[in-house]
Write a protein that binds this DNA or RNA. Structure first.
Lengths: 209, 209
DNA sequence: AAATAACTGGACTTGCAAGTCCAGTTTTTC
DNA sequence: GAAAAACTGGACTTGCAAGTCCAGTTATTT
């Protein structure tokens, strides 16, 4: 159990970094596909081409491995804070962000992680927090910063940029996202597109000038 | 297995309606507290003061019991479609609805059911659908109908009432709801209140006249 | 080359929960 | 009062997965 966290004694054969990566990759994949309960340590060992003992040698136990895997996942699919072009006017940038955001949150991967987080609040409270910080929080902060700047420049009139950012992203989810979360059939593409446009228009109407 | 669904042969001792209710009540409670995997049939039988055999006699198997329990739950905590006072002007009614809605979706029960649904999309697809129809869909439809009427009367200017209803409810969730879903510490009460007010104001600003 | 520790593969232990079986008891209908 | 079916309680079967153990092997350091 402590082997995983100990500094290496530098005597004898060292742990293989490659195997560690393999295990982590397999775990990340399986967890995001089948969830925590749906993935056995044997599955992970097999998928990683490694013995079960080795998994335990590297990560101590399943729970710990889970934690490492999820925070890894967040970092890698880090929702881009820096892709925002701060100089673009809202009429150009806001629709772009809207489309990118909807695409992201409706992806099977994102939905899976979201579901895992909401279901491990008691058993693994840290997971949800890690995801929250690396995911949603980061995204909202980025938009809020943009809105603040546009407000200063006088292109928008927003008292509370952070609140406005939350409004915008939450609103965008709409029916389509909920249906996706519940595994229901998607709406017609035109309808989804129209909804996004309506959100953008409504947002700009409320906060313009 | 079929005993549960068969019409009673009306010979011999009939199944006790009371026990059925007890089982269902226990199941509903345990499922919404501990989730599907976290609740064993033994737990339910014990909590209902009944033998395990009786549970199986009434409901056939765990999965079926789960389905009945959840759809029951939806019906009972049925998000009121009819509590809407259609004649009230938006400036009065919208804030009321907002507060009631936020209170509802942040309740531990609602959060639990939501989490269960998003996590049983493969194993029990019907669950999520049942909840969706009896819960969110119903609520949105009710608001949409109100908005449509107010639009006709000329107190609001809304092209697509259904879309506007989705916008409103989704927007209201905001940071507070997500934090609740993730089991994170709540925001200061004043902040949450302020956010709700901002949403109401923003919505009315965008759709007034 | 000797010591050391990682790695393998497979057997093993432990614990849990779904679902079945059964013998005896109670309730209800005919 | 006899037949039928629900109910109890507890033993039982089955299956699964976490985690351990071990004997043999492989890689690495001194």
């Amino acid at each position: 159990m402590n082997a995983a966290t100990q500094e290496m004694r530098s005597r004898g054969r060292p742990r293989s970094e490659e195997k560690r990566r393999d295990i982590l990759a397999a775990a990340t994949h399986l967890f995001t596909v089948a969830g925590y309960e749906g993935t056995s340590v044997d599955d992970i060992a097999t998928a990683a081409g490694v013995s079960k003992q080795t998994v335990y040698s590297h990560f101590g136990n399943k729970e710990n491995l889970f934690g490492v895997a999820v925070s890894e996942k967040c970092r890698e699919s880090g929702v881009d804070a820096d892709v925002i072009e701060m100089n673009q006017p809202p009429e150009v940038l806001i629709p772009q962000i809207a489309r990118r955001f909807v695409g992201l949150v409706k992806s099977p991967e994102a939905l899976r992680i979201y579901a895992i987080c909401t279901n491990s609040t008691e058993s693994h409270p840290r997971i949800a927090e890690l995801f929250y910080l690396h995911g949603p929080k980061k995204t909202v902060d980025a938009l809020a910063e943009y809105l603040r700047q546009q407000n200063e420049v006088g292109r928008l009139a927003i008292d509370d940029p952070a609140a406005a950012a939350w409004q915008f992203f939450c609103m965008l989810k709409g029916e389509a996202h909920m249906r996706a979360q519940f595994g229901l059939e998607g709406l017609p593409a035109e309808e989804e597109e129209a909804y996004i446009d309506q959100c953008v228009a409504m947002f700009l109407r409320a906060y313009s000038r």
